[in-house]
Structures are given as C-alpha cells and as structure tokens.
Design a protein around this nucleic acid. Structure first.
Lengths: 163, 163
DNA sequence: GCCTGCTAATTGACATGTCAATCAGGAGTG
DNA sequence: CACTCCTGATTGACATGTCAATTAGCAGGC
C-alpha cells in the first residue's frame, strides 16, 4: 500500500543502527524477563506463567469454570495451544474438562480444588517477582512510558492485522 | 493501597493494579511482537529469528566460523540450546560443524555457502519487519524511552544475578 | 603414571508451541 | 431428509527450549 507520506522518517527505509540496537535491547530484555520470571515461579510454586494465566482466568470466572473457547479468547491463545496445555494441566490435576451441557461439541474447563490451591499459593510469589524484576527496575516515569509504548505497539500490530 | 510513600515506592509491597496492568501489556506485547516477526520471517525467508541470530554471528565472524562456545557467548544462549539448534541447522545445510584443530574437545561452527545465501536473502525482510512492526509504531521519544527502559531492566536483572 | 577436577560439547527426557488435518455436532437450504 | 458449510475442540507431527546427565579431553599435584 502506498501510504501518504509520514511527517517523520520515511516508512520505506530500513532501520538505522541506533534503531536496530534499541530493537534488540528491547526484545532480548523482554525475553530475559520472561525467562527469569518463569524459572522463579517454577521453583516457588511449580506453576509456569502459562499455568498461572489459565488458573487466573478460571479463578475469576463465574463458578470457576469456562468454556474452552471463552478461556482461549480471554487469555488470547490459539485453540490448539490451549488444548495441549489443558491436557497437561489436567494430567497434573489442576483442572478438569467435562462435556458442556448446552452444546455437546463444547468442553467446560473447571478449576479443581487442587488447582485453586496451587493458584492461591503462587499469587504472592508471582506478584512479588513482577515487582522485583520489573516495577522496581523503573522510575515512575519510565513505568508510565513503558505502558504507553506497549499500548502504541499493540495498536500498531492490531491495525496491521486488518490490512 | 493507601500509602504515604517516599520518593520511591516501598520495595516490599506488591504491585498496584496499574503497575500490574502495565506489566501485562508490556510482556504480552513483547511476546506478540516476537511471534509476529517470527511468522513473517518464516514465510519470507524460511529462517526463524534464532536461525538469523546464529547466521548473523557467523557472518560477522573471522573466516565465517566460530567455536561453539564463542558463538553461545556472543548470542547469549545456553550451550545445550545452541547444540540442539546447531543440530537442526546442520540438518538443513545452513551450517557445518567440524572438529577444532587446537582443541579436540571443541567444535568449529562454519557458515556454509547455502547458509550465507539464506542469510543474505533474509536480511532485508528482517530489517523491514523490524521497522514496520516496531520502529514505525513509536514516536522518536518513545523509541528513545524504549531503549532506556530496556537498559534499566537489563541492569536491574544483571544486578540481581549476582546477589 | 594416576587421581581429581575442570572445560567443551552433546545427549535424552521432557515441557512447550505452531501448523495442518481431523472429528463431531450445529444450522441453513433445497 | 440430504447436502454443504461453519464451529468447537482435539490430535499428530514436528520445532523449539530447559534441565540434568554424560562423554571426552585438558591440566595440576602427587
């Protein structure tokens, strides 16, 4: 698409060395954060961030249960990813799947008592790790800027989805 | 949380709802960016970002070869991850491993002509995607702030490594 | 020469993720 | 009802990553 020219840099050019360096710092740091948080949580609660996201959504849900597709939409996962992950979580006794009453094709995902317990136990360590690794590293202005940057990137990505 | 806080927030407290929202936006957006870039590159060049990182390091190396451990240090990977990845890349003909002349334990990783070719072909699409998904989404001030945020997070993480 | 311990790298088992294919049950149309 | 298409969800094959164990060779002390 030939777009009206931006007032800023030309959109056709490749990134400068500076821009590239920032990109690498940004993406590698985010990756390092993710991996650090994951290994911390693994030790402190035997849950991965993915487990946590699933359990969080279920905990907040009406009756502690959700249709599989609602759950997927809520946490923004592809269906097959969720299916595989639920299979693993079910084997570990964190959740249970049962046939949906209203639609025989569907599955209801239920939080088990053991899953609820694991979730409770991991909440504080999880939040503490986020503060420690992320919030404490930034000044209040940087934190605000981080939120704005994430929002801008998200909007831009979503916009490009539809084109 | 009603807190008459000093200049900085107390380090013991859990994150506020705002802080938590920013964290989630940040980490999920970074993840979305990574995945978007990966699938774009897969289509345009049949290389993953990991492949690209390995090929980039080798391309810049003296004689287009590196000791396996130097390569790992250069791109910041664990050894076993690199070993597995090199195995896959070797099967695809992108690199070649051969015994190191000076230390029989070591391996030299060489860029093959086919690997060099794949790398050349993927450079422009790669850079273009970075501009499109990342640089173009941000104002110059946001871009600068992103660099500073990444640096601050990195420093903080590294500092916590040593404690 | 023989231990002991260190370093380089690989391996195996397993967790996680993607993609394409599949299965089963609606739902609309003739 | 028969046909076709859509939707909900799972599955299998395979790519990727982590962790712990293993293989192999170097190096120092005795």
């Amino acid at each position: 698409m030939t777009k009206a020219t931006p007032h800023r840099r030309s959109r056709r050019q490749l990134p400068t060395a500076d821009e590239l360096r920032i990109w690498r710092d940004f993406i590698e740091t985010a990756e390092a954060l993710r991996s650090r948080l994951a290994s911390r949580l693994q030790v402190e609660s035997s849950l991965s961030p993915s487990d946590y996201a699933v359990l969080l959504a279920l905990s907040e849900a009406q009756d502690r249960q959700l249709r599989s597709s609602e759950l997927a939409a809520h946490i923004g996962w592809e269906r097959s990813r969720l299916s595989h992950h639920l299979g693993r979580m079910e084997r570990r006794g964190l959740i249970r799947r049962q046939e949906c009453a209203t639609d025989p094709r569907g599955a209801e995902v239920h939080l088990t008592p053991s899953g609820a317990e694991a979730f409770r136990g991991s909440t504080v360590p999880h939040l503490r790790a986020i503060r420690e690794f992320f919030v404490d590293a930034l000044t209040p202005e940087q934190l605000r800027a981080a939120g704005e940057i994430a929002a801008a990137l998200r909007v831009h990505l979503d916009a490009r989805d539809k084109e």
